[in-house]
């Protein structure tokens, strides 16, 4: 994907310093490119250290290829960078465990996370991978809120967990795929058991 066609992340102009800003280019695993401000990158400890270590100048950013983030897809990365742009310049919370953490989800974050559960889990995974503390806090809180008042069966559906039957079927399929002989041995074993044999051998 070319730089011209890259999805543009909304940038809050008021928050931009007068000096010349630097926008880093990142590429998701499905080759989507994003331009993210230096201040927004500071929300992610992983990316911040990465760009510091690379020591790119404004020319390098334009001339060199975009920084690849291999583990995250474009859809998730867009959400991550939207969040970072909105919260750029904000202090990063430090969790020293001294006080019980009370997390409140701001309106913007609530709207941003109004997505399907699969994407939400991907967002959590990305926040953890990129070490974005506050995004991880709010997304985990959102997942915790989803569990409120749910029975174990409802939780399975909300958290996209397979039922016991589906689990068994998946396990069997995996076994078969790994070793076709295993199924035959199992069937033979079951047959012998039905016939009343104490020992398989």
């Amino acid at each position: 994907m070319s730089v011209e066609n890259a999805p543009v992340v909304d940038v809050d102009e008021a928050a931009i310093p007068v000096e010349k800003k630097m926008y880093y280019r990142f590429e998701s695993n499905d080759k989507k490119e994003f331009r993210v401000s230096e201040l927004a990158i500071q929300q992610s400890e992983t990316l911040n250290r990465l760009v510091e270590a690379m020591g790119y100048t404004s020319e390098d950013v334009e001339n060199k290829p975009a920084i690849a983030i291999e583990n995250i897809d474009g859809k998730t990365l867009k959400l991550v960078f939207q969040w970072c742009e909105h919260h750029k310049g904000e202090a990063i919370p430090v969790d020293d465990g001294s006080v019980p953490k009370i997390v409140e989800i701001p309106e913007f974050d609530a709207k941003l996370m109004d997505i399907d559960n699969g994407l939400l889990f991907k967002l959590i995974w990305a926040a953890d991978y990129l070490n974005i503390v506050q995004l991880l806090n709010v997304s985990c809180k959102k997942v915790a809120n989803m569990a409120q008042g749910k029975t174990p069966a409802q939780l399975r559906r909300v958290y996209l967990l397979p039922s016991d039957e589906e689990d068994e079927a998946a396990k069997r399929a995996a076994q078969e795929a790994q070793d076709p002989r295993a199924r035959e041995v199992e069937e033979e074993f079951e047959e012998r058991k039905r016939q009343g044999g104490n020992s398989f051998f």
């Binding site: 889990f121 806090n137 409802q154 958290y159």
Partner: peptide, 29 residues
């Protein structure tokens, strides 16, 4: 992506935000 794909440390992060009865439900999952 699903709950089961999350590593235990992220699950811990979520569980710390759960209320009492949600914890009870999740224990049975």
């Amino acid at each position: 992506a699903a709950w089961s794909c999350l590593p235990p440390e992220i699950k811990l992060h979520v569980i710390r935000n759960l209320d009492f009865m949600s914890r009870k439900s999740l224990r049975c999952v």
